[in-house]
Structure formats: structure tokens, C-alpha cells
């Protein structure tokens, strides 16, 4: 929830800044193309999908690869400096940030790091499950992760895990749903009880997790081979699929209205 508020706040501020800037800039040069301007130097970071391996939190860039968590200070934005390198000893897939914690989706589960001191992240807990590919995202006291099994990722289980993280030191699996071919996932920006899951060839799905022990499938768009998703505060839903990048109006989170597609050519 805090996260949502932050996103909203950032969005509002940046919207305000952009609108101011446009007034100043438009008359000056090249009015033929009303192009996006990002001249405000204090814009902060953007928003990535759930499969991201790079994330920026308060002036630090965190990157993961198959063996290392790297932390770069961006105090000189033109010349990042490596401030910490942690050998994880396990294959890492994704990194997500919420409220001072990094959630790292790895081959053996979810590792949670306290980054209140960015120069020395501390592992507070790990939530282990079977070997698989697994992006993880969090919203308030709930984290959700997908496990993609099958020969490609080791393990043979494909499912959505709902994890209670109210005690960050002891994450607990509270709900699970079987999936087919999951990749990325994300919370709805308008309703924190709704989780979108990109279930590969089985489509884009939405689950209602109001009852965290018993997630309910409330939407399936089976014509989309969905891979990753970004839900922005203005109810825009960006979905990467095998055919392109789709955008939906998600004002009604289960009645998505397609606005545009950048087609793969």
C-alpha cells in the first residue's frame, strides 16, 4: 500500500513537473513534434516489469546475474561506483524492491534483503521451495511469486505462491494455485487484492487474493501469450506478450480494454 502511495506521489509530482516544463519548452524549439521531454533532473527511477534484474532504489543501482548481487552508488550519476558485490551461490532471476527490502527471485526460492544500509545489505530471510524459475513481487504484507517448472527450469511444478510477509523474518506460504507456464506477475494498481499473472501460453490471468489462503481466478485472456506486466498508477496495464507490447485501460481491473499494441515485426 505504501508502495502504491509512493508510486502515486511520484506520478503526481512528475506529472506536475512535466506539465510545467511543457509550458516552458513548447514555444522554443521544434513545435512540429510534441515529443516527450524528460529534462527534469530529479525525476528519480522508473518502473520495471517483474522479470527485471536491475533496480534503482534511492541513489543505488542493484543488479543481479546468475551468481552475484552488485550494488552501485549513483552519487555521481555519470560514473556509478561498485560499492558491494555479494556472491549468492545460487542462480538469481529477478529483483524487486519494496519499503527498504529487496526481494530476489532465485532458483531455490525468494531471498529477502534489508537494504536500509545500501552499502551492506543483510539477508533477513529466505523462503525456499522447489527448484524453478520464479519472479517475485510484493505489496504491503503480501508477496506473490510464480514457480515455473518443466524441463526448462528444473522442478516440475508450475504455480502461484501467495506468501505472508507481515513478519519479514519468517515469510509463510499461505495460498497456492496451479499454473501452466508462468512468467511475470504484478499487482493491480487500483485494487491490491488483484494479482495479474502472465501464464505464458495459457494467457493473462487475474486472481482475487482477498482471501489469501484461497486465491480465485477472476479473469483469463487466453488469446495473449503473456510474459511480463507493468501496472502504472493511471490504470494503464502494459503487457509483454509473444506478439508485442500491449496496453490496456485497467480502470475496471477485470474488464481490460485494449488501447494499443506495438507489434513484433
Amino acid at each position: 500500500m505504501k508502495n502504491l502511495k509512493n508510486i502515486l506521489a511520484v506520478a503526481c509530482i512528475s506529472a506536475a513537473i512535466i506539465s510545467c516544463e511543457k509550458e516552458e519548452v513548447t514555444p522554443v524549439e521544434d513545435s512540429s513534434t510534441p515529443v516527450a521531454t524528460t529534462k527534469n533532473a530529479q525525476a528519480g527511477p522508473g518502473i520495471g516489469g517483474s522479470l527485471a534484474q536491475f533496480t534503482i532504489v534511492e541513489g543505488y543501482l542493484y543488479t543481479i546475474d546468475y551468481k552475484t548481487l552488485n550494488i552501485f552508488s549513483l552519487s555521481n550519476p555519470d560514473m556509478p561506483s561498485l560499492s558491494e558485490k555479494i556472491d549468492m551461490g545460487v542462480g538469481m532471476e529477478t529483483v524487486f524492491h519494496q519499503d527498504g527490502y529487496l526481494y530476489i527471485g532465485a532458483n531455490d526460492g525468494v531471498h529477502i534483503y534489508d537494504i536500509s544500509n545500501p552499502r551492506s545489505p543483510m539477508e533477513v530471510s529466505d523462503y525456499e521451495h522447489v527448484t524453478s524459475c520464479d519472479p517475485v513481487v510484493a505489496n504491503g504484507d503480501i508477496a506473490v511469486a510464480t514457480l515455473r517448472g518443466g524441463t526448462e527450469c528444473g522442478g516440475n511444478l508450475s504455480q502461484l505462491d501467495v506468501i505472508d510477509i507481515s513478519n519479514i523474518y519468517s515469510p509463510e506460504l499461505v495460498g497456492e494455485v496451479e499454473l501452466s507456464n508462468p512468467y511475470g506477475l504484478g499487482f493491480s494498481s487500483s485494487n491490491a487484492n488483484i494479482v495479474y499473472v502472465c501464464d505464458g501460453y495459457d494467457g493473462l490471468k487475474a486472481y482475487d487474493i482477498s482471501n489469501i489462503t484461497d486465491p480465485q481466478l477472476i479473469m483469463t485472456m487466453s488469446d495473449l501469450e503473456a510474459l511480463d506486466i507493468i501496472s502504472t498508477a493511471d490504470n494503464n496495464l502494459i503487457v509483454l506478450t509473444t506478439t508485442g507490447v500491449h496496453q490496456f485501460d485497467a480502470t475496471n481491473p477485470t474488464q481490460l480494454v485494449e488501447k494499443s499494441v506495438i507489434q513484433i515485426q
Binding site: 524528460t38 520495471g48 513484433i264
Partner: peptide
Amino acid sequence: QPLQNPGRIYVYENLLLV
């Protein structure tokens, strides 16, 4: 460039990066 094999998606202000 034509979009052919998209990987990560990213939103920065009013930009979409793929």
C-alpha cells in the same frame, strides 16, 4: 528499429522502454 524479440519492459515518466 522494428520490434523483433522484446525482453524487458520499463516505464520512465511518459516514456516506454523495451
